[in-house]
């Protein structure tokens, strides 16, 4: 009896937290179907016109394209760098390994505001690089790579290093061993790294703001639209789309990761 009470209280608490976390987010899709430019109750009526408007807004589509370009590029670069770094850290006895890993992890801890300013100063004043999607991408790689490396380190640590030795022993050279053994076994990690880097880049605002120049990514575009009340429902529609996409990607990444963990359970002991 007492136990049931206890569970009930816990349950209520859990529901409260979940509502607090996700309730506001759910307002987004709700108002995106509301037939009014004002974001206010009571709801007026159901419409999909904001979605139609969104689909014909060329500035928005351009920003979306920019974001996709940067996101895909960042995902690939950060995963490749993350994989090589993870392999170096795990399989080789590097001098100063902990320091190197620390340096790579540092951007995780730095507030992106300062990171953005610092990068801006370096790019403009030291290297006089013109700001563009490239500079945004470079900044994003900096903050995505630690994630990629962490994911891939965990993945590589998860399998026996004698698997790679067995491949060498059976006549494959280092390159062949990487492609026939290391990469297939790291694949679930590679995929989740690609997906997570992509989503991180997709909704990153601060660094894109500092390093963007005249090029606009989606978060920058959305922010610029917030000043015009008439545009707000369209932004909500866009936000809802991104929300759904993000959820799908994150769930996908997690499913792939879990499946990978299962299929490569240690084969002995």
């Amino acid at each position: 009896m007492k136990r049931a009470m206890h569970l009930n209280l816990l349950g209520v608490y859990a529901i409260f937290i979940v509502a607090l976390l996700y309730g506001p987010v759910l307002l987004l899709p709700m108002f995106s179907f509301n037939d009014s430019i004002y974001i206010a109750f009571p709801l007026k009526g159901f419409t999909t016109k904001w979605y139609q408007e969104m689909a014909t807004n060329s500035a928005l589509l351009a920003a979306l394209m920019n974001s996709l370009k940067v996101g895909i590029g960042v995902a690939i670069v950060s995963t490749v760098l993350g994989l090589t770094a993870a392999k170096a850290v795990i399989r080789h006895r590097l001098p100063g390994k902990t320091q190197i890993v620390g340096m790579i992890m540092l951007p995780l801890l730095l507030p992106s505001l300062f990171l953005g300013i610092a990068l801006l100063i370096i790019l403009r004043k030291v290297f006089s690089v013109d700001l563009s999607l490239w500079t945004i991408g470079a900044g994003h790689v900096l903050i995505c790579m630690p994630f990629s490396m962490l994911i891939l380190i965990a993945r590589l640590e998860g399998f026996d290093k004698s698997l790679e030795e067995a491949s060498l022993d059976l006549g494959e050279n280092a390159w062949g061993t990487f492609w026939h053994v290391t990469f297939p076994l790291a694949l679930p990690g590679v995929i989740s790294s690609l997906l997570l880097s992509f989503t991180t880049s997709l909704d990153e605002f601060v660094i894109a703001f500092f390093l963007g120049g005249n090029d606009t990514t989606l978060p920058l575009f959305i922010w610029s639209q917030l000043r015009f009340p008439a545009k707000l429902p369209g932004v909500l529609a866009l936000g809802s789309c991104i929300l759904v996409l993000s959820i799908v990607i994150v769930v996908l990444a997690e499913v792939v990761r879990r499946r990978g963990v299962q299929s490569s359970k240690p084969t002995v002991f």
Partner: peptide, 28 residues
């Protein structure tokens, strides 16, 4: 190792988990 006339049976066996038994045996 890949150029030596030796082959190894590992303590953990090191069977490739992503390959079938036949593919494992055919690997070398």
């Amino acid at each position: 190792p890949y150029k030596r006339p030796t082959n190894t049976v590992f303590q953990s066996y090191a069977i490739f988990p992503h390959l079938s038994v036949a593919e494992n045996i055919g690997y070398g």
